[in-house]
């Protein structure tokens, strides 16, 4: 599938109807989501034919991008049932298979090393401090091949250090820097859009023993 086509399919998805502030519910725009997954597939071969998990899947944009790029089995996980229902409708609209699980990321118990790749746009941790790091540490335990994630550029050094030193990553690279348009979803945002710099990361976990 061409990048343009992927972006336009993602652009038609339904997004959060009543975003919940405490869960940092804002969608990954079609522009960023399509580039993120397209790069994972075309530069690194991490999507097609793989088992992919999407942490904090919300309405499923990243998960569905993975299925459109021929991932074999995609699992979206989110705490919020309303978002999961929308994700499920989005999957039906696109006529693709998407597995969904309602859970806190940190509380899910995984067996074996079946997940190849984790993709995520985690809460940036502006509402609940450390939420981004919690997602990253679990992702590096669950993935056997790679983790793709978005983090605020201001946290770059911190992320790199934590990933390599504490979370068992063998490499942590910023693939590109993006502008993230946080739409004015929340009343406390005064300006119309808040445009922040975010990094697209690729982490590689160290090889694991079979559990």
């Amino acid at each position: 599938m061409k990048l343009k086509q992927l972006e336009s399919l993602l652009g038609n998805l339904q997004q959060f109807q009543n975003p919940k502030i405490e869960l940092e519910q804002y969608p990954t725009g079609a522009h960023i989501a399509s580039r993120m997954l397209y790069t994972a597939e075309n530069s690194y071969d991490d999507i097609s034919g793989k088992v992919v998990a999407d942490f904090g899947c919300g309405c499923g944009t990243l998960s569905l991008a993975a299925t459109l790029l021929d991932a074999e089995h995609v699992i979206g996980i989110d705490v919020d049932d309303e978002s999961l229902e929308i994700a499920s409708v989005n999957a039906d609209e696109l006529e693709v298979e998407l597995e969904l699980i309602q859970s806190e990321i940190k509380n899910l118990q995984w067996r074996g090393q079946i997940v190849d790749t984790v993709v995520m746009n985690p809460p940036f941790g502006t509402r609940k401090k450390g939420a981004d790091m919690e997602f990253l540490s679990v992702a590096l335990k669950v993935a056997s091949q790679a983790v793709y994630s978005l983090h605020k550029t201001t946290t770059r050094e911190h992320i790199k250090r934590a990933a390599l030193r504490d979370y068992n990553a063998s490499s942590a690279e910023v693939i590109c820097e993006l502008r993230y348009d946080l739409p004015k979803l929340y009343k406390f945002h005064k300006k119309k859009d808040v445009d922040i710099a975010v990094d697209l990361w690729r982490f590689v976990p160290k090889a694991k023993q079979e559990s």
Binding site: V51, H73, I75, E97, E99, I101, S103, N107, L108, Q109, W110, R111, G112, I114, V115
Partner: peptide, 19 residues
């Protein structure tokens, strides 16, 4: 839910050793 997903999930309750 597919059985592949079932094969990768265990019970996550505190204290459970054989979930």
């Amino acid at each position: 839910m597919r059985l592949l997903t079932h094969n990768m999930l265990a019970s996550n309750i505190k204290g459970v050793t054989n979930g």
